[in-house]
């Protein structure tokens, strides 16, 4: 089980979940994961789109009541 960094960006107006994810991916090793919690539906779409474009790995997107959980693995 690789180590996972949690970003609770629920309700955060700045810098926003994707910006936080990009920063967090720079701070971890290849193979490690980041879980982003976001109350913004847009993040559930934006993050997978960006992850695919850049070449990291999507582990999963899950709706959990009033927020979304998006898990990404650093691939490069």
């Amino acid at each position: 089980m690789s180590e996972r960094t949690l970003i609770d960006a629920r309700g955060a107006f700045c810098p926003g979940p994707l910006m936080e994810l990009i920063a967090a991916l720079k701070a971890i090793e290849i193979g490690e994961e980041v879980e982003v919690l976001s109350s913004d539906k847009g993040s559930a779409d934006d993050i997978p789109e960006w992850v695919a474009k850049v070449g990291h790995e999507m582990v999963g997107v899950e709706e959990k009541g009033d927020h979304w959980s998006v898990v990404v693995r650093r691939a490069k």
């Binding site: 926003g16 910006m19 990009i22 934006d46």
Partner: peptide, 10 residues
Amino acid sequence: YPIGRLHALE
């Protein structure tokens, strides 16, 4: 800019 708009604050 790193994300899909001109500033992190929408």
